[in-house]
Design a protein around this nucleic acid. Structure first.
Lengths: 129, 129
DNA sequence: ATAACTGCAAATCTTTTGCTTACAG
DNA sequence: CTGTAAGCAAAAGATTTGCAGTTAT
Protein backbone atom coordinates (compact mmCIF):
# COMPACT_ATOMS: atom_id res chain seq x y z
CA UNK A 1 0.00 0.00 0.00
CA UNK A 2 1.40 3.36 -1.02
CA UNK A 3 1.68 6.38 1.21
CA UNK A 4 -1.16 8.19 -0.51
CA UNK A 5 -3.46 5.27 0.03
CA UNK A 6 -2.44 4.96 3.63
CA UNK A 7 -3.22 8.64 4.03
CA UNK A 8 -6.71 8.20 2.59
CA UNK A 9 -7.43 5.16 4.71
CA UNK A 10 -6.31 7.03 7.80
CA UNK A 11 -8.59 9.95 7.06
CA UNK A 12 -11.58 7.68 6.56
CA UNK A 13 -10.88 5.79 9.76
CA UNK A 14 -10.41 8.93 11.81
CA UNK A 15 -13.38 10.81 10.48
CA UNK A 16 -16.31 11.14 12.83
CA UNK A 17 -18.67 11.73 9.95
CA UNK A 18 -19.34 10.07 6.66
CA UNK A 19 -17.14 11.39 3.90
CA UNK A 20 -17.90 11.79 0.25
CA UNK A 21 -15.14 11.62 -2.34
CA UNK A 22 -14.83 15.39 -2.73
CA UNK A 23 -14.50 15.98 0.99
CA UNK A 24 -12.01 13.17 1.31
CA UNK A 25 -9.95 14.72 -1.46
CA UNK A 26 -10.07 18.09 0.21
CA UNK A 27 -8.94 16.69 3.55
CA UNK A 28 -6.19 14.64 1.95
CA UNK A 29 -4.84 17.69 0.15
CA UNK A 30 -4.14 19.39 3.43
CA UNK A 31 -1.48 16.79 3.99
CA UNK A 32 -0.51 16.13 0.39
CA UNK A 33 -1.48 18.96 -1.95
CA UNK A 34 -0.57 16.92 -5.03
CA UNK A 35 -3.03 14.11 -4.53
CA UNK A 36 -5.44 13.77 -7.38
CA UNK A 37 -9.14 13.12 -7.58
CA UNK A 38 -8.56 10.00 -9.66
CA UNK A 39 -6.37 8.57 -6.93
CA UNK A 40 -9.14 9.09 -4.43
CA UNK A 41 -11.67 7.31 -6.59
CA UNK A 42 -9.31 4.50 -7.46
CA UNK A 43 -8.45 3.99 -3.82
CA UNK A 44 -12.09 3.98 -2.78
CA UNK A 45 -12.86 1.36 -5.41
CA UNK A 46 -10.02 -0.77 -4.14
CA UNK A 47 -11.02 -0.50 -0.50
CA UNK A 48 -14.62 -1.25 -1.32
CA UNK A 49 -13.56 -4.28 -3.27
CA UNK A 50 -11.52 -5.60 -0.40
CA UNK A 51 -14.39 -5.01 1.97
CA UNK A 52 -12.48 -2.49 4.06
CA UNK A 53 -14.99 0.29 3.65
CA UNK A 54 -18.71 0.51 3.12
CA UNK A 55 -20.32 2.73 0.56
CA UNK A 56 -23.48 4.57 1.57
CA UNK A 57 -26.04 6.64 -0.25
CA UNK A 58 -27.67 8.09 2.84
CA UNK A 59 -30.94 8.24 0.96
CA UNK A 60 -29.34 10.70 -1.48
CA UNK A 61 -30.23 13.33 1.01
CA UNK A 62 -27.86 15.70 -0.69
CA UNK A 63 -27.12 14.98 -4.31
CA UNK A 64 -26.16 11.69 -5.84
CA UNK A 65 -22.77 11.30 -4.32
CA UNK A 66 -21.63 8.43 -2.17
CA UNK A 67 -20.37 8.41 1.35
CA UNK A 68 -17.85 6.10 2.90
CA UNK A 69 -17.06 4.71 6.29
CA UNK A 70 -14.58 2.19 7.61
CA UNK A 71 -16.18 -1.23 7.88
CA UNK A 72 -17.29 -1.85 11.42
CA UNK A 73 -17.52 -5.17 13.15
CA UNK A 74 -21.28 -4.86 13.26
CA UNK A 75 -23.53 -3.84 10.41
CA UNK A 76 -25.75 -0.93 11.21
CA UNK A 77 -28.56 1.07 9.77
CA UNK A 78 -28.30 4.72 8.75
CA UNK A 79 -31.25 6.96 9.40
CA UNK A 80 -31.24 10.23 7.48
CA UNK A 81 -33.46 13.15 8.45
CA UNK A 82 -34.98 14.78 5.39
CA UNK A 83 -35.33 18.06 7.20
CA UNK A 84 -32.09 18.71 9.08
CA UNK A 85 -29.89 16.21 7.31
CA UNK A 86 -28.73 14.53 10.50
CA UNK A 87 -27.50 10.97 10.15
CA UNK A 88 -28.16 8.55 12.96
CA UNK A 89 -26.88 5.03 13.25
CA UNK A 90 -28.72 2.08 14.61
CA UNK A 91 -27.47 -1.40 15.32
CA UNK A 92 -29.36 -4.20 17.01
CA UNK A 93 -29.47 -7.90 17.40
CA UNK A 94 -32.70 -7.94 15.40
CA UNK A 95 -30.74 -6.72 12.41
CA UNK A 96 -28.25 -9.52 12.82
CA UNK A 97 -31.08 -11.97 13.15
CA UNK A 98 -32.71 -10.73 9.99
CA UNK A 99 -29.48 -11.13 8.05
CA UNK A 100 -29.08 -14.65 9.33
CA UNK A 101 -32.63 -15.44 8.38
CA UNK A 102 -32.14 -14.10 4.86
CA UNK A 103 -29.10 -16.28 4.32
CA UNK A 104 -30.83 -19.36 5.65
CA UNK A 105 -34.02 -18.91 3.72
CA UNK A 106 -32.66 -17.74 0.39
CA UNK A 107 -29.25 -19.36 0.21
CA UNK A 108 -27.86 -16.03 -0.87
CA UNK A 109 -24.27 -15.40 0.12
CA UNK A 110 -24.14 -11.91 1.58
CA UNK A 111 -21.14 -9.74 0.91
CA UNK A 112 -22.51 -6.29 1.73
CA UNK A 113 -25.63 -5.10 3.44
CA UNK A 114 -27.04 -1.64 3.34
CA UNK A 115 -30.05 -0.63 5.38
CA UNK A 116 -31.01 3.00 5.01
CA UNK A 117 -33.96 4.87 6.32
CA UNK A 118 -35.27 8.29 5.41
CA UNK A 119 -37.69 10.29 7.51
CA UNK A 120 -37.70 12.75 10.34
CA UNK A 121 -35.66 12.78 13.50
CA UNK A 122 -37.28 13.42 16.84
CA UNK A 123 -36.42 17.09 16.93
CA UNK A 124 -37.70 17.78 13.43
CA UNK A 125 -40.97 16.03 14.15
CA UNK A 126 -41.58 18.48 16.96
CA UNK A 127 -40.51 21.43 14.82
CA UNK A 128 -42.95 20.42 12.10
CA UNK A 129 -45.95 20.34 14.37
CA UNK B 1 -52.58 13.96 -13.14
CA UNK B 2 -51.82 14.37 -16.85
CA UNK B 3 -52.01 11.62 -19.42
CA UNK B 4 -48.26 11.39 -19.75
CA UNK B 5 -47.92 10.87 -16.03
CA UNK B 6 -50.63 8.28 -16.01
CA UNK B 7 -48.82 6.49 -18.79
CA UNK B 8 -45.58 6.45 -16.80
CA UNK B 9 -47.29 5.26 -13.64
CA UNK B 10 -48.98 2.49 -15.58
CA UNK B 11 -45.73 1.27 -17.04
CA UNK B 12 -44.05 1.19 -13.65
CA UNK B 13 -46.94 -0.69 -12.11
CA UNK B 14 -47.12 -3.25 -14.88
CA UNK B 15 -43.44 -3.89 -15.18
CA UNK B 16 -42.25 -7.20 -13.80
CA UNK B 17 -38.73 -5.86 -13.38
CA UNK B 18 -37.20 -2.77 -11.88
CA UNK B 19 -36.98 0.06 -14.34
CA UNK B 20 -34.39 2.76 -14.60
CA UNK B 21 -35.26 6.16 -16.01
CA UNK B 22 -33.84 5.45 -19.46
CA UNK B 23 -35.75 2.20 -19.84
CA UNK B 24 -38.91 3.82 -18.60
CA UNK B 25 -38.50 6.56 -21.19
CA UNK B 26 -37.95 4.01 -23.92
CA UNK B 27 -41.05 2.06 -22.99
CA UNK B 28 -43.15 5.19 -22.70
CA UNK B 29 -42.07 6.36 -26.14
CA UNK B 30 -43.61 3.30 -27.68
CA UNK B 31 -46.95 4.74 -26.70
CA UNK B 32 -46.15 8.42 -26.86
CA UNK B 33 -43.12 9.15 -29.04
CA UNK B 34 -43.04 12.78 -27.96
CA UNK B 35 -42.49 12.21 -24.30
CA UNK B 36 -39.29 13.75 -23.05
CA UNK B 37 -36.60 12.61 -20.68
CA UNK B 38 -37.20 15.62 -18.45
CA UNK B 39 -40.83 14.64 -18.05
CA UNK B 40 -39.78 11.19 -16.94
CA UNK B 41 -37.42 12.55 -14.33
CA UNK B 42 -39.89 15.15 -13.14
CA UNK B 43 -42.61 12.55 -12.82
CA UNK B 44 -40.36 10.17 -10.94
CA UNK B 45 -39.45 12.93 -8.50
CA UNK B 46 -43.11 13.66 -7.96
CA UNK B 47 -44.11 10.06 -7.41
CA UNK B 48 -41.21 9.51 -5.06
CA UNK B 49 -42.23 12.57 -3.11
CA UNK B 50 -45.77 11.37 -2.77
CA UNK B 51 -44.56 7.97 -1.67
CA UNK B 52 -46.10 6.17 -4.62
CA UNK B 53 -42.87 4.62 -5.81
CA UNK B 54 -39.66 3.50 -4.21
CA UNK B 55 -36.25 4.35 -5.53
CA UNK B 56 -33.63 1.64 -5.48
CA UNK B 57 -29.92 1.53 -6.12
CA UNK B 58 -29.65 -2.24 -6.33
CA UNK B 59 -26.14 -1.96 -4.99
CA UNK B 60 -25.15 0.02 -8.11
CA UNK B 61 -24.67 -3.30 -9.74
CA UNK B 62 -24.69 -1.61 -13.10
CA UNK B 63 -23.70 2.02 -13.12
CA UNK B 64 -24.97 4.74 -10.88
CA UNK B 65 -28.50 4.90 -12.12
CA UNK B 66 -31.61 4.36 -10.04
CA UNK B 67 -34.37 1.86 -10.35
CA UNK B 68 -38.00 2.28 -9.49
CA UNK B 69 -40.87 0.14 -8.39
CA UNK B 70 -44.43 0.79 -7.34
CA UNK B 71 -44.70 0.98 -3.58
CA UNK B 72 -45.88 -2.33 -2.22
CA UNK B 73 -47.87 -2.87 0.90
CA UNK B 74 -44.95 -4.59 2.50
CA UNK B 75 -41.38 -3.37 2.51
CA UNK B 76 -38.93 -5.86 1.18
CA UNK B 77 -35.25 -6.36 0.73
CA UNK B 78 -33.47 -6.52 -2.63
CA UNK B 79 -30.63 -8.96 -3.03
CA UNK B 80 -28.37 -8.32 -6.01
CA UNK B 81 -25.99 -10.95 -7.33
CA UNK B 82 -22.63 -9.43 -8.22
CA UNK B 83 -21.94 -12.15 -10.73
CA UNK B 84 -25.12 -12.69 -12.74
CA UNK B 85 -26.94 -9.50 -11.86
CA UNK B 86 -30.10 -11.26 -10.73
CA UNK B 87 -32.30 -9.37 -8.31
CA UNK B 88 -34.18 -11.29 -5.66
CA UNK B 89 -36.70 -9.93 -3.25
CA UNK B 90 -37.15 -10.90 0.32
CA UNK B 91 -39.85 -9.93 2.77
CA UNK B 92 -40.37 -11.27 6.25
CA UNK B 93 -41.97 -10.47 9.53
CA UNK B 94 -38.50 -10.05 11.01
CA UNK B 95 -38.02 -7.07 8.76
CA UNK B 96 -41.26 -5.55 9.96
CA UNK B 97 -40.23 -6.21 13.51
CA UNK B 98 -36.89 -4.53 13.00
CA UNK B 99 -38.56 -1.44 11.59
CA UNK B 100 -40.92 -1.27 14.51
CA UNK B 101 -38.04 -1.64 16.91
CA UNK B 102 -36.12 1.16 15.22
CA UNK B 103 -39.05 3.52 15.55
CA UNK B 104 -39.62 2.66 19.17
CA UNK B 105 -36.03 2.90 20.23
CA UNK B 106 -34.93 5.94 18.26
CA UNK B 107 -38.11 7.98 17.95
CA UNK B 108 -37.27 8.42 14.27
CA UNK B 109 -40.29 8.81 12.01
CA UNK B 110 -39.74 6.50 9.08
CA UNK B 111 -40.83 7.62 5.63
CA UNK B 112 -38.82 5.28 3.42
CA UNK B 113 -36.79 2.18 4.08
CA UNK B 114 -34.27 0.63 1.80
CA UNK B 115 -32.59 -2.65 2.58
CA UNK B 116 -30.22 -3.84 -0.09
CA UNK B 117 -27.85 -6.74 -0.11
CA UNK B 118 -25.02 -7.53 -2.48
CA UNK B 119 -23.42 -10.93 -2.82
CA UNK B 120 -23.84 -14.16 -4.71
CA UNK B 121 -26.97 -16.07 -5.49
CA UNK B 122 -27.15 -19.80 -4.98
CA UNK B 123 -26.39 -20.69 -8.55
CA UNK B 124 -23.37 -18.39 -8.79
CA UNK B 125 -21.92 -19.76 -5.58
CA UNK B 126 -21.90 -23.18 -7.17
CA UNK B 127 -20.46 -21.85 -10.42
CA UNK B 128 -17.63 -20.19 -8.54
CA UNK B 129 -16.50 -23.32 -6.78
C1' DA C 1 -56.42 34.16 -15.83
C1' DT C 2 -53.50 31.26 -13.16
C1' DA C 3 -51.01 27.64 -12.19
C1' DA C 4 -49.04 23.44 -13.49
C1' DC C 5 -46.88 20.60 -17.31
C1' DT C 6 -43.94 20.02 -21.42
C1' DG C 7 -40.06 19.88 -24.84
C1' DC C 8 -35.66 21.23 -25.89
C1' DA C 9 -31.03 22.16 -25.20
C1' DA C 10 -27.61 23.16 -22.24
C1' DA C 11 -25.65 22.72 -17.74
C1' DT C 12 -24.38 20.26 -13.61
C1' DC C 13 -22.58 16.86 -10.68
C1' DT C 14 -20.14 12.75 -9.83
C1' DT C 15 -17.39 9.26 -11.35
C1' DT C 16 -14.41 6.93 -14.80
C1' DT C 17 -10.86 6.44 -18.39
C1' DG C 18 -6.64 6.81 -21.55
C1' DC C 19 -2.35 7.91 -21.59
C1' DT C 20 2.27 9.07 -19.99
C1' DT C 21 5.42 9.43 -16.32
C1' DA C 22 7.02 7.92 -11.73
C1' DC C 23 7.65 4.66 -8.18
C1' DA C 24 7.99 0.11 -5.54
C1' DG C 25 9.12 -4.76 -4.95
C1' DC D 1 13.40 -5.12 -14.50
C1' DT D 2 8.29 -5.40 -14.20
C1' DG D 3 4.10 -4.36 -12.47
C1' DT D 4 1.38 -1.15 -10.07
C1' DA D 5 0.23 3.68 -8.83
C1' DA D 6 -0.28 8.63 -9.85
C1' DG D 7 -1.23 12.92 -12.32
C1' DC D 8 -3.59 15.20 -15.80
C1' DA D 9 -7.08 16.24 -18.79
C1' DA D 10 -10.83 14.76 -21.17
C1' DA D 11 -14.96 11.72 -21.43
C1' DA D 12 -18.83 9.51 -19.82
C1' DG D 13 -23.25 8.61 -17.40
C1' DA D 14 -27.17 10.18 -14.99
C1' DT D 15 -29.90 13.75 -13.63
C1' DT D 16 -31.36 18.66 -13.35
C1' DT D 17 -32.38 23.29 -14.95
C1' DG D 18 -33.89 27.69 -17.52
C1' DC D 19 -36.75 29.14 -20.61
C1' DA D 20 -40.44 29.63 -23.86
C1' DG D 21 -44.56 27.62 -25.37
C1' DT D 22 -48.81 24.60 -24.08
C1' DT D 23 -52.42 22.71 -21.53
C1' DA D 24 -55.61 22.25 -17.83
C1' DT D 25 -58.63 24.29 -14.09
Amino acid sequence: MTSQRRLLVGIIQDSPRHLDAATLLELARKQDPDIDRATVYRTLALLKDRGLIDELDLMHIQGEKHYYEAKTSRDHCHMACFRCGAIMEYASSSFEKLKKEMVEQSGFQIRVVRLEVGGFCKRCQRAAS
